[in-house]
Design a protein around this nucleic acid. Structure first.
Length: 466
RNA sequence: GGCCCCAUCGUCUAGGGGUUAGGACAUCAGCUUUUCAAGCUGACGGCCGGGGUUCGAAUCCCCGUGGGGCUACCA
């Protein structure tokens, strides 16, 4: 078997989103699983829509996710000369012709065809232009596009995900390979590049299926051997249409900013359309690299499930070593206005540890821990509980008892609390609720002993003062 | 309109002629817990419809239906 070479070829007309990240992932996994190379190619031949910030966003996103590539990024915009050369090559062979139709004319024809219930394919108007007509256009300074003559036959190919596919070329209009501005069309540039880069497997979205026959025609006309194709099903929004911004679908960078872990995102991406043989749902990239197979991909499209992403995220958060988790929380705490540099690193880890079961996304770390770092307590719930008759004795016993505890930990603090409950003959809930409210000003939070340990004796006693 | 693709719980999926149709998320209930979570246990819930083929169809075939994609000098 010849060497496996695959590519991820995004157009930088937007940020790296869930759908394209998934295609990048499957290319990467296929390359890794087969000892092949993964290539990043930037398809920026649409000069109006492409932008460098999107190139950066895509590269950053891939890097953050850990989807590496062995070659590239290769920009198509730097290979324009190459496409021209290959266009000239088939121009000489007569598979293509110059087309002087204007966009307005084409749009008009398309409209008419559609209204007549006919397929809106190009009618081949410029195929039979006389030399005089061409001269006339040239004299007017009109720049031609170059069209590929499709012909009448049928094109068959074997799709690694979908099986045998067949298309009737008579239904496809002669398509443009070089635009009048000199830049190549998508189909042409992709074919020239895939051939020259010796891509063995083209793994891309299902939305490219109908481009494939056109591309196969081009491979043949250029004298190249076509690669293998694998068309992966789409990701849909909750309304079952192509996932897009209107579904609230976000870019990878936005999910990152919200506090989703790359591990969770990758895991969900893998779970959509692919289930490994052992049915293990929690799966790392490294593990997937070993067992990924294109044949195991489902043919049907998958609805993106944010709830499952959240669940996975929580699973990964809880599985993270506490030092690692704390590091990952740092940017969010800073952004939330917590002066993390002023906090002892070990104490910070204890703070994070105390609330990690509550987290579904990292950004929530702020709402769950901010009160640890605040000096003033909210007045209202605290005031109410302090007004209760038994409160004074609870807090006094607590403050007094605390002084006698040598080291604050799970056992010693709980022993103290139990003693207070027994001595005052009060209900456990009542005592603990009172102390929690006095210390934190809140009725919910981590286990009390953890809070007491993190606060330390002085702070606890100060806040217990009635 | 034409062409193409797809079809198992609400969602992601396993199952590819004989299964009580399995798992996960979500939902609901119980347990646990001072609380919020987390965790554990359980419940609810599905083969799009109709025809074939077959002793037997979720599974194979056909036809519908539904959904999606493409139909650009976008990629």
């Amino acid at each position: 078997m010849s060497k496996v070479r695959v590519r991820f070829a995004p157009s930088p007309t937007g940020n790296l989103h869930i759908g394209s990240a998934r295609i990048a992932l499957f290319n990467y996994l296929f390359a890794r699983a087969n000892g092949g190379k993964n290539i990043l190619r930037i398809e920026d031949t649409d000069f109006d829509r492409s932008a460098d910030i999107y190139v950066d966003n895509i590269r950053d996103g891939l890097q953050w996710l850990g989807i590496t590539y062995d070659e590239g990024p290769i920009h198509q915009s730097s290979r324009l000369q190459l496409y021209q050369e290959y266009a000239q090559k088939i121009l000489a062979q007569g598979h293509v012709y110059k087309c002087y139709c204007t966009e307005a004319e084409l749009a008009e024809k398309r409209k008419i065809a559609l209204s007549l219930g006919k397929p809106p394919k190009y009618d081949g108007h410029c195929k039979c232009l006389t030399a005089e007509q061409v001269q006339q256009f040239e004299a007017n300074g009109q720049k031609p596009a170059i069209r590929f003559e499709v012909g009448q036959r049928k094109v068959k190919f074997h799709d690694l995900v979908r099986g045998d596919l067949e298309f009737d070329c008579s239904l496809i209009g002669d398509f443009v390979i070089i635009k009048s501005n000199g830049s190549p069309s998508y189909n042409f540039a992709a074919v020239v590049d895939d051939a020259l880069m010796k891509i063995s497997h083209v793994i891309r979205g299902e939305d490219h299926i109908s481009n494939t026959p056109k591309q196969i025609l081009l491979y043949e006309a250029l004298g190249f051997t076509a690669p293998q194709f694998a068309h992966i099903s789409m990701i849909l929004g909750p309304d079952r249409t192509k996932l897009s911004k209107r579904h609230g679908a976000k870019s990878i960078s936005e999910y990152r900013e919200e506090g989703f872990l790359k591990e969770a995102i990758l895991n969900l991406l893998m779970l959509m359309s692919w289930s490994p043989e052992d049915h293990q749902e929690i799966m790392t990239l490294a593990a997937a690299e070993k067992v990924f197979r294109l044949e195991d991909l489902a043919k049907s499209p998958a609805v993106f499930d944010i709830e499952k992403l959240k669940w996975l995220n929580g699973q990964y958060i809880r599985a993270l070593p506490i030092a690692d988790l704390t590091q990952r929380c740092l940017p969010f705490l800073r952004q939330g206005g917590v002066a993390v540099n002023a906090v002892d690193p070990a104490a910070l880890e204890e703070v994070v540890e105390s609330v990690k079961d509550n987290l579904t996304v990292l950004s929530e770390i702020v709402q769950y821990t901010a009160w640890y770092f605040e000096n003033d307590l909210p007045e209202s719930p605290r005031k109410e509980i302090l007004a209760k008759p038994e409160t004074a004795s609870i807090l006094e016993s607590f403050a007094r008892g605390l002084a006698g505890v040598p080291k604050l930990n799970h056992d010693s603090v709980n022993a103290l609390l139990d003693k207070i409950i027994v001595n005052l003959s009060l209900k456990k809930g009542q005592v603990l609720k009172t102390i929690r409210l006095a210390l934190t000003g809140r009725s919910a939070g981590p286990e009390l002993w953890k809070i007491i340990r993190i606060f330390g004796k002085d702070k606890c006693q100060k806040r217990s003062a009635v």
